[in-house]
Simulated scan of single mutants.
Amino acid sequence: MKKRQHYWVIASFAFLFFVMLGYVVKFYPEALRPFDTSVQSTIRGDLPQPLTAFFKTITVIGNPSTQAIIAAVAVIVLWLKKWYAEAIYVATNSILAGICIVSLKYIYQRPRPSITHLVHASGNSFPSGHATGIFLIIGSIFVICFQRLSSQTAKWTVAILLGLLIFCIALSRIYLGVHYPSDIIGGFLLAYAIHNLVFPYYDQLRFKWRFQGKQK
């Protein structure tokens, strides 16, 4: 119970920071302009062609359709391996990500940046669906790998690779001009809050089912 409360506290603070940021986005967006503009300018630079090609490619991994495919494949593979709690964990985080992204974009209705977009992006800007969704889906896979892998080298290799993937996808949205940096921060805060809310239930279910022999 204490462990669950620990995660709830973390989730509460992450939600609080998200709401605070969202309040500024909704009512005082000009207050974020200096920060967003300076970060955008630093990241985009003079838009070198190789970097543009890289970010155009990697951002596709964070597209809603790609996220859905990654989540579906992960759930199927985990279920076939009889890792049922893990499959439910990925599915739950994926569904919650989708619901929150659609709902909150409608609530905040922040227009996308007015700078040149290097890829097509429709809908509202805050929070970033790429940052939120990919953090939760890839983050869930990261947690499962960290629990299941026995080798410390393998664990940290997976952690670094998946962490870099999440970072690069989020960075691509700023570079390509379709999100403000504060959209990315908001997406990460939201995803981190959801993760800490869901994780203790998943971890308890996983322990219970493995103890009862209901899953591997």
Rank of each mutant, 00 (worst) to 15 (best):
residue 60 V to G: 07
residue 101 I to Q: 07
residue 113 P to C: 01
residue 209 W to N: 12
residue 4 R to H: 11
residue 2 K to Y: 15
residue 199 F to M: 13
residue 175 Y to L: 07
residue 56 K to P: 03
residue 178 V to N: 02
residue 183 D to C: 05
residue 9 V to H: 02
residue 6 H to Y: 14
residue 97 A to I: 01
residue 41 S to G: 13
residue 159 A to G: 10
residue 205 L to M: 14
residue 57 T to G: 10
residue 26 K to D: 05
residue 183 D to R: 00
residue 2 K to T: 11
residue 8 W to T: 10
residue 95 I to R: 00
residue 70 I to N: 04
residue 63 N to V: 02
residue 32 L to S: 05
residue 58 I to H: 08
residue 180 Y to I: 01
residue 71 A to N: 00
residue 124 N to Q: 09
residue 11 A to F: 02
residue 148 R to H: 10
residue 120 H to V: 08
residue 12 S to F: 14
residue 110 R to A: 00
residue 44 R to L: 08
residue 186 G to S: 05
residue 42 T to N: 08
residue 67 Q to C: 10
residue 83 W to T: 04
residue 24 V to G: 11
residue 96 L to F: 11
residue 25 V to P: 06
residue 118 L to Y: 03
residue 205 L to I: 05
residue 148 R to F: 11
residue 95 I to H: 04
residue 141 I to K: 04
residue 158 V to R: 01
residue 73 V to C: 08
residue 69 I to H: 08
residue 92 T to R: 09
residue 216 K to V: 14
residue 159 A to E: 08
residue 209 W to M: 12
residue 78 L to I: 10
residue 35 F to D: 06
residue 117 H to D: 06
residue 70 I to R: 03
residue 47 L to M: 09
residue 70 I to S: 05
residue 136 L to E: 06
residue 191 A to Y: 03
residue 132 T to H: 09
residue 183 D to K: 09
residue 167 F to T: 09
residue 18 F to P: 01
residue 120 H to T: 03
residue 169 I to Q: 09
residue 206 R to H: 14
residue 194 I to A: 01
residue 97 A to T: 02
residue 63 N to Y: 15
residue 78 L to G: 03
residue 172 S to Y: 06
residue 77 V to N: 04
residue 123 G to A: 07
residue 154 A to K: 09
residue 206 R to M: 10
residue 158 V to G: 01
residue 156 W to I: 15
residue 120 H to K: 13
residue 54 F to G: 05
residue 93 N to C: 14
residue 71 A to S: 03
residue 184 I to K: 01
residue 190 L to E: 02
residue 31 A to W: 11
residue 203 D to R: 12
residue 15 F to W: 15
residue 178 V to P: 03
residue 58 I to N: 01
residue 198 V to W: 03
residue 39 V to N: 04
residue 36 D to C: 01
residue 206 R to S: 15
residue 77 V to L: 13
residue 79 W to F: 11
residue 34 P to E: 05
residue 193 A to S: 12
residue 105 K to P: 04
residue 69 I to E: 07
residue 95 I to S: 10
residue 27 F to C: 03
residue 185 I to F: 03
residue 183 D to H: 07
residue 216 K to S: 13
residue 88 I to C: 10
residue 79 W to L: 13
residue 175 Y to P: 00
residue 112 R to W: 06
residue 165 L to M: 14
residue 137 I to F: 00
residue 10 I to Q: 02
residue 202 Y to V: 14
residue 123 G to D: 04
residue 163 G to W: 06
residue 54 F to Y: 13
residue 147 Q to C: 12
residue 13 F to E: 08
residue 171 L to W: 13
residue 110 R to S: 00
